[in-house]
Amino acid sequence: MADASFQPSRIPGFATVAVLAFVCLYLPIFTLVAYAFNAGTSIAVWEGVSLHWFARAWENEAVKSATLRSLLIATTASAVSTAVATLAALGTTRRAAYHGQTFIYVLINQPLMVPEIVTAVALMIFFGVIKQWTGYQGLGYLILAHTAFCIPFAYLPIRARLEGMDLSLETAASDLYASNWQTFRHVTLPLLAPGILAGAMLAFVISLDDVVITEFVKSGGQDTLPTYMLGQMRRAITPEVNAISTGLLGLTVILLTAFFLLTRKKG
């Protein structure tokens, strides 16, 4: 080719590695989904098509309560963390650069950088002390923990959206007699909405998916869907786990597709 620029796709073996990578990523998921429809009790031996395991999972009270708990935690945590992240994003972009801004940025994004297991152990010990003091054993701890680690995931898309927003629009609003609150309500918020929604959905998925922190923080009888499934692994595994996973996968795919469409639509 006349074009002398570097083309990774022309390196020998590129295609092989690419195909292998995709196989490793997607084949297990396809297998998982396929075996959710297995008629037999094994997750390795195919015995025909059936929706039996979906029905089993649907009728399983433990799965139901874990699902509801997961949704409750994810909804609350994503709502609160998105509100906090919106304020944080406004505070770190809608003004001239100030001393210590990078430090604040790092502080907000701490959950992305500290190993999750460290946060999990720390939370377990910290909440353990509080549990002893107050005697409170409820879901509050899980919601609080999820809210905290969801903040950076909500923060990033909101901040990205804000950085692309023309500051002169807010100046124009204030010029046209809008008070600070009116400017926020009528100009900043509507323009920021796609970013906020994207942040909320990302936070929701992250919360729904969490195992490590949940496993360490939860009290007895507070299984979420992922920790319930982890518990099942210790016993004989049936395609019921595949069915639950497939449901979770479906929900995640829907949310991430919506997230993608929302962030892309901004031209």
Binding site: S168, L169, L176
Partner: peptide
Amino acid sequence: NTVFQSYALF
């Protein structure tokens, strides 16, 4: 009121 260089229309 101001007419901005970039117009700054909403």
